[in-house]
């Protein structure tokens, strides 16, 4: 019998600690598959954020640094400058990347660091227990926006992909999601594009994955993707905002 599905070599055997219905595990796996396919496991270095995926290093069987909150792109810069032949990626949530680490991601992108940033946008702080994120939707109730996010006092959801795409240096900026098998395959392709571009030394790539957080959204795991599709995708439109090398055409 032929084995058609197994754990990617780049994943560790440790079971995920993520909640049921959370997309972290799915995206982790896609990244690991890409690392395997590109045969870069022995030279890949990940940078874990602060947030639910702080333990990302437990699940990948590659070298890892665990960075301070929001600073992963700066840490990745340091690593990549010392080891330009390695493949360096950051894995960050919306609190990490779009709030406290805004400066670091913008400037790493603007310097055109030859790294890949994977941005998990689920519109909420997960690990600290469901506080409002910069990407929380207008009217969205969270622990720190109990009356719903009010644009008058808390501003609007921040669109990181669109912002980063305005910079000259990044080569690839795309927003994807894993709410159904077709989109999941697109996400895999986007990650493959991003890591391939880095491997080829082309420059900074950014993959935003619109993701779930059923626990802090107060949804059943089975309802989370439906809520994401109906509420988040109208605000965070899927698509590729920058592709200077034309990887999606080829």
């Amino acid at each position: 019998m032929k084995k058609i599905f197994s754990r990617p070599e780049s994943m560790s055997k440790k079971p995920f600690h993520y909640c049921p219905g959370c997309d972290h595990g799915v995206v982790h796996r896609l990244i690991a598959e890409v690392i395997d396919e590109l045969e870069i496991k022995n030279r890949t270095i990940g940078v874990a954020p602060v947030g639910c995926s702080v333990f990302a290093y437990d699940y990948f069987d590659v070298d890892f640094n665990q960075a301070p909150h929001g600073r992963a792109p700066a840490v990745a810069t340091g690593i990549k400058r010392v080891r330009p032949d390695s493949i360096v990626f950051t894995y960050q949530g919306d609190g990490d990347l779009a709030a406290i680490g805004t400066a670091e991601i913008i400037h790493a992108a603007n310097r055109g660091e030859n790294i890949t940033a994977v941005f998990i946008n689920n519109a909420i702080y997960g690990m600290t227990g469901g506080q409002m994120a910069p990407t929380s939707l207008i009217g969205m109730k969270t622990q720190t926006s109990p009356y719903g996010r009010d644009a008058a006092t808390a501003g609007h959801p921040i669109h990181m992909s669109e912002m980063i795409a305005t910079l000259e240096s990044p080569v690839y900026v795309t927003r994807v999601t894993v709410n159904n098998p077709a989109n999941l395959m697109k996400t895999k392709k986007a990650l493959l594009n991003a890591f391939t571009l880095q491997k080829e030394g082309k420059g900074f790539s950014f993959v935003e994955v619109v993701s779930t957080c059923p626990t802090n959204w107060g949804k059943k795991p089975t309802d989370a993707h439906k809520w994401l599709t109906e509420n988040m995708l109208p605000v965070f439109k899927l698509g590729t905002f920058k592709d200077t090398q034309g990887v999606e055409k080829s």
């Binding site: 940078v47 640094n65 960075a67 301070p68 600073r71 700066a74 840490v75 990745a76 810069t77 340091g78 690593i79 990549k80 400058r81 010392v82 670091e104």
Partner: peptide, 8 residues
């Protein structure tokens, strides 16, 4: 943090 990365 770049120092942290490069030192790492």
């Amino acid at each position: 943090n770049m120092v942290y990365g490069a030192g790492s």
